[in-house]
Amino acid sequence: MTDQAHLERGYRRLLAWYPRAFRDEHGPEILAVLMACVPDGQRRPGLAESADLIRSGLWMRLRPSVPRSARTVRAAVQFICAGAAVSTVSLIIVLAVIVDIRVRHAVLGHRLIAAQVSQVNTSVIMQVIVSCLVPVAVWLWMARANGRGRNWARILFTVLFGLTTLTLAGVIPPPVINIASSAVASNSIVPPSVITISVGPMVSMMPFIPGLGPVVPVLTGLVVPALAWLAGAAAMCLLWLPASNAFFRSQGSLQARRRAQRAELERIR
């Protein structure tokens, strides 16, 4: 294999970090530039060049691709990201609370054997963490999909937001995980801590644990859901403005065109 062909293969491999649609459109062009930039006699991609390609490729995959002209959609995506941030804050609060529970058990000298404490707390921790991570993940997913102008994402976001609103308004019962920890209850040291977690899409109501004071329930039960709801409401309104419709429509036809192009390429091969 010649040095040229060897080098080209190396660059092709690096271009795999880019999203497929981008590679289909710009791959040959970037390859030409890469090959032109290389000093003679080089056999493989340089370290800095490779890092730059990987970084750019990943960025292309992760960034929201909303043009500056679609101002309303940009703002909507920013609100959705704010929702993700709020959910992350609630996750952090919950983790702090969990640590606090562990400390309390130790400080108050509850006659739980160590195994019971760790057993109770581990199951609680797992469920709480998972139920807090789900909303964060859903927010981020929605930011990405809506930022790409996927119409289904706009619809799904609206449905999720509607369900959350109904849940908050008490029209439909929240999906609840009850953790009445038998170990604690049977020792009747602490009243059975019923931990209520909404696994609803955007809001996670936090554990109402007796004896922790009003701060945590107010923060996690009221402030966080309220902020999350406001961010969701703002994003939803922006997504359905006439100005946003144009963006979703143009992205839709762009995707259809790309699919057709790809099918055509496959056919030729």
Binding site: I30, E49, D52, L53, I54, S56, P67, R68
Partner: peptide
């Protein structure tokens, strides 16, 4: 660098 250039070109095109 080519990676940086095409990231910038893509954004300028989107804008």
């Amino acid at each position: 660098r080519p990676g940086t250039l095409y990231t910038a070109l893509d954004r300028l095109r989107a804008d």
